[in-house]
Every structure is written in C-alpha cells, then in structure tokens.
Design a protein around this nucleic acid. Sequence first.
DNA 1: ATTACTGTATATATACCATATATACAGTTA
DNA 2: TAACTGTATATATGGTATATATACAGTAAT
Lengths: 128, 128
Amino acid sequence: MILHLTDLSDEPLQSQIVRQIRAKILAGELTAGADLPSIRKLAREQHISVITVQRAYETLEHEGLIHSRRGKGFFVTELSDEARKTLAKKRLQEILEPKIRAALAEGLSKREINEVIRETLKGDLNNF
Amino acid sequence: MILHLTDLSDEPLQSQIVRQIRAKILAGELTAGADLPSIRKLAREQHISVITVQRAYETLEHEGLIHSRRGKGFFVTELSDEARKTLAKKRLQEILEPKIRAALAEGLSKREINEVIRETLKGDLNNF
DNA sequence: ATTACTGTATATATACCATATATACAGTTA
DNA sequence: TAACTGTATATATGGTATATATACAGTAAT
C-alpha cells in the first residue's frame, strides 16, 4: 500500500496516515475485507515508529472503518457503497458546519460563502 | 465586551477567545481603533489565566487584527470594509481547501460536496 | 510623587498530544 | 519453532494549553 508521508508539513504523521487510508477506504480503493499492512511493516516501510502507526490504525478502528484481529492483523470493515458515501458526507458536514458558522459570524453572507466554495472547487478542477 | 467562553467543549479557551474576537472585528462589531479589555481585566472577568488571554491577543496581533501599546493596552487595527471582507474570504478559503480536497479524495463528487454545503447553509438559515 | 493600571518577560508546574525507542505478552502462521 | 501478528506498558523528548507567580517598563489618575 502506497502512502505519501512527509514531515515537512504541519500535519502530524498520525493524521496523514489516517487521512490517506480513510480516503482509500471511502473511495473504494481498499476493498471491504482487505488486510492492511501490519503496524510493524508499515512502520518499517515509512521509517516511522510502530506506535505512530498503531495510534493511526486505532483512530480508523474507532471510526469503524477497520477492525483488528490479534495475531492476524487489521482489516477493512465491510461497508456498502451507500454507507461509504453517507460516512463521507457526514464527515464533511461535521467539519464544515463550525467553519461556515464562523464565516457567517465574521460577516460573510451565504452568497459570499458559496462564491468562495465555487472558486475553491473550480481551483481543484485543474488538479483532478 | 461579551465573550462566551466554556470549558465544556473541546475547543481550547485560547481558540475560543481568538475566534470570538476575530468575528467581532471582521463583522465590524468592534470598530477600528477601539480598545480591547486589558489582559488582566478579561482574565478577571472570565476567571481564566492572564497568560491565556495574552496568548490569544498575541495570535490576533499576529493576524494583524489588533496591535498593542505597552502601558496603554490592545487596540483594533484600522481596516477598511473591503479589507475585512477579503480577510474573511481568504481565511475561509484556506480552511476549506484541504477539507474539500479530502472529500474529493474520499470519493465525493463536486455535486455531492455542493449538496452538503447547501444543506449546511440551509440548516444555518434557521439559526440566523 | 505615588498608586494603580497597562503590556512584556520569565519561571515553574500540570496535563495532554505526537512521536520515539524498548520490552514483553498473547495469538497466528509458515 | 521461528517469525510474524496485535496489545500493553514504560520512558523520553518536544510542543501546546493553561495555570500561578514575579518582575520590569510604560501610562494614567490622584
């Protein structure tokens, strides 16, 4: 499994691992039931500490995206396409709600907020 | 000045202070040149540590929203309506861009992202 | 001039997070 | 049996958030 980890950004390694594996699972790139690399294997490959991987996997387990079996490893949890889409939407909403609320409190109108989002999505169009 | 601080939420006190004062400034509720309560006064009123207020004010100063004068206090920086709006938009865009990028990586389409945002804004309509 | 306020600086402490190295136990597989 | 797996724990470093305390320098009121 390919993860792109860097210690040049502000984002903690744990967070990078969680974010990237979560995306692979929710985008359907990691199929249900698939096994993840062992914590020791991933730590070795990425030259990071085992406990860093362990904590990341625990977070994903807490989110219900993976589950562990002692002696066997971690596995991607069975989720329907619909469940995955619902999870992704729910997460986005939870993340955006307080930010949008703050923007409104800062004096931006709904129209202006929509405009910022449109520009942001348009910017991403060139990168996808 | 009225701030609503709580230690019941996950949000650190510093962050709450910064967020609430920033909103007041960007929304034009705190007028340019206005003085902020002294760090000791605000700490007393909110029953928190002086250094917590100091760190929050320093963050706002670093963002260019306020400036300090030794012996006199902290003051709201002069900003035009346009500059305030630009700042708010820029901040929102900086916050949203990585989150939208993550949502795309998780398999959500632009249409679905727009839908989540529309629902979120609609939800907020009832609270404003 | 003195007192009371202001911000700035520093020290120490606690709790938590992120990350690291190390060790050990229990379960699984080759 | 050896090599792998996850689980648990200890210790350490560095950073953040928050607290109490002290002291200095600047400002304003009495």
